[in-house]
Structures are given as C-alpha cells and as structure tokens.
Amino acid sequence: MRAITTVGFDADDTLWQNEAFFRLTEARFLDLLSDYAAPEHLGERLLAAERRNLGHYGFGIKGFVLSMIETAIEVTQGRVAGPVIAEILAVGREMLAHPIELLPHARAAVIAAAADHQVLLITKGDLLDQERKLAQSGLGELFHGVEIVSDKTPDAYARVFARHGGVAERSVMVGNSVKSDVLPVIALGGYGVHIPHGVTWALEEAEAPLGHPRFHSLPDLGGLTALLQALHIRTPQ
C-alpha cells in the first residue's frame, strides 16, 4: 500500500454545524407562507427551486435565500407581500452572521492528521461565507491549504490535489457527504471516510459504497486518528 500524503477535510457539517441552520430557516419560511400552501408542498417547491438554481447561484446561503424568494413569488402567483420578502432577506442575513459551532473532536482530528500529513480544507459554497466561517472557527492556521470550489467533482478534486503536489491515489477525503466527499475521491483511486451528520440536505443524499476497500465510515471525528494508523497510511518520516 502506497503511503498517504494528503488528508482532505470537508467543512460544513464535518468540522462545524451548517445544515441545521438551513432547516431552522426553512421552517420559518414555511410558517411565513402557511396561508398559501401546506408545509409539505412548500418544502417540495423550495427543494425544486434549489435544484434548479444550483447552476446559477451555486451552493450556499445566498442561493438558498434567492430560492426562497423565487418560491414565495411562485406559490403566491406574484402576490407575496413586501414584508414577507423583507423577512426572508432578514433570516438570510441572520444565517450569514451565525456564530460557528465546531463539531466534536474537530480541532483534535485536524491537529493529529497534520502531524504526519499535508492537510487541506476542501469545501464548496459561497467564497465570502466560507472564508468567514473558517476565520471564526479558529482552525485556519492548521491547514496547509484551503480550497473553496464551486462543486466537488472528480475533476475538481484531481485539480486540488495536483495544485498541492499530491495525487488522489495517495489522498484521503473526510466528510459528511457520501455524494460530495466520498464517491468522487474513491472514483479517482483515493480513500473516502464518511462521518455521518444527523441532518443531510436532500440534494446531498447518495448510497454509501459499502464493501468498497477504500471506503470507511466513522461515527465522529474522534476515531479518525486510529483509522489512519490502522490503515498504515501515515506518511513515512
């Protein structure tokens, strides 16, 4: 087995909380428009708008807010009141200002991985918001490189690893999304470590490649160091 030289970490819902705030905001949105449609219908319409708009706005809070506004206009047939739009914008600003909540073992896991490997933060979403969250997390100085990409595809990962002098076959990616953090890296010949989060966005759901020799799952980041050691993938000194 070739030594692993690079360990990549996802950010949202791997190192810090994220999706829970989207769910709370969505609940407020459904309540705002409860006079126009049932919550289940509104939720479906919002998800459809998010899926439609990913190619235009990308991932993140700003695209989510625009999708909420679009959905509000659609379900009210253009009659949505100005105060409702103002409330949607206000909750979006609240999301952008929400303090960072690190998940258990996040800092210790990054420190331990950095002792023997090049560690990269590889995340997607709005550039300014991701930079804000990283700065507030206190983890920024622990990474050898930070990459904020528009989407997590095999090609995107290959470019990231190459920019930092590595190759996918000697890399591990750690994250909560099987679709974005695990499958693309395994497809390139690397290792994927899934850290499930209690809340997963519908557009990030995918089947885990159970039984694949380069796929691993842990209940939280507390077991990552032991997994790296067990796989004998620590970089030789």
Rank of each mutant, 00 (worst) to 15 (best):
R2P: 12
R2V: 09
D10R: 11
A11H: 08
D12H: 09
D12Y: 04
D12L: 01
T14M: 01
L15Y: 14
F21S: 00
F22M: 00
F22I: 00
F22E: 01
F22R: 00
R23I: 05
L24W: 12
D31Q: 08
S34V: 06
A37K: 02
A38M: 06
P39G: 03
L42H: 15
G43S: 08
R45A: 08
L47N: 13
R52N: 10
F59L: 01
F64Y: 11
V65W: 08
S67Y: 03
M68P: 08
I69K: 04
E70C: 05
R79N: 05
V80E: 06
A81T: 03
G82P: 10
I85N: 02
A86C: 09
A90C: 08
V91W: 04
E94I: 04
L96G: 02
A97L: 15
L102M: 05
R107E: 07
A109G: 10
A115D: 13
D116C: 10
I122R: 05
L127S: 01
D129M: 07
R132L: 01
R132Q: 12
K133G: 04
K133M: 02
A135H: 15
A135F: 15
S137F: 13
G138P: 10
G138T: 14
F143E: 02
H144N: 13
G145I: 08
E147D: 05
E147H: 11
I148H: 00
S150A: 14
D151P: 04
D151H: 14
T153F: 12
A156S: 13
Y157S: 01
A158T: 06
V160E: 10
A162Y: 13
A168W: 15
R170F: 13
R170L: 05
S171E: 07
S171H: 13
D181T: 07
D181F: 12
V182S: 00
G190I: 02
G192F: 15
V193A: 02
V193Q: 00
H197A: 06
V199Y: 09
T200H: 11
T200N: 01
A202R: 09
A202E: 03
L203A: 03
E205L: 05
E205C: 11
E205F: 15
E205A: 15
A208L: 11
G211L: 01
H212C: 03
H212N: 04
F215D: 00
F215G: 08
F215C: 03
F215T: 00
T225G: 02
A230K: 11
P236C: 14
Q237K: 09
